[in-house]
Simulated scan of single mutants.
Amino acid sequence: MEPADDPEHRRAQRFRVFKAGTIEFSGNAIPCTVRNLSASGAALEINSPLWFPDRFTLAIASDGSQRACHIVWRREKRIGVAFEQLPPA
């Protein structure tokens, strides 16, 4: 288990979900499945072997959300991402 995937090291509790998502960067969009989700990050399942950058926007159509994020771990077809902090209002 990766440290970032260990519940002891997470900043916020994650909840198991099964939502369609899209990894968006530079005009490209790669489909993914959001497997768990929290206020600070998510675990994504990728079926495509295509390369994508360490920083991208995760879009979840079912709730209309878009979050800038960066990869904190990779394992075969799964990646863990942390959401970028929103700038202070």
Rank of each mutant, 00 (worst) to 15 (best):
M1L: 12
M1T: 11
M1S: 09
M1P: 06
A4F: 11
A4K: 12
D6V: 04
E8D: 14
H9T: 06
H9S: 12
R10L: 09
R11F: 13
A12C: 15
Q13V: 14
F15W: 07
F18N: 14
K19C: 04
K19R: 14
A20H: 09
T22V: 10
T22Y: 07
E24M: 02
F25D: 01
S26Y: 08
S26T: 11
N28L: 08
A29R: 08
I30C: 00
P31G: 10
P31W: 05
C32V: 03
T33N: 07
T33A: 08
V34P: 03
R35E: 06
N36Y: 07
N36I: 01
N36E: 11
S38V: 08
G41P: 04
E45Q: 13
I46F: 03
P49N: 11
L50S: 12
L50A: 13
F52V: 00
F52Q: 01
P53Y: 02
F56L: 01
T57I: 10
T57A: 09
T57Q: 11
L58V: 02
L58D: 02
A59Q: 07
A61N: 04
A61V: 01
S65K: 12
Q66A: 14
R67H: 11
H70F: 14
I71F: 01
W73V: 03
R74V: 04
R74S: 09
R75Y: 10
E76A: 12
K77H: 14
K77Q: 13
R78M: 12
G80W: 05
V81A: 00
A82D: 15
A82M: 11
F83N: 07
F83T: 05
E84R: 10
P88Q: 14
P88R: 13
A89D: 08
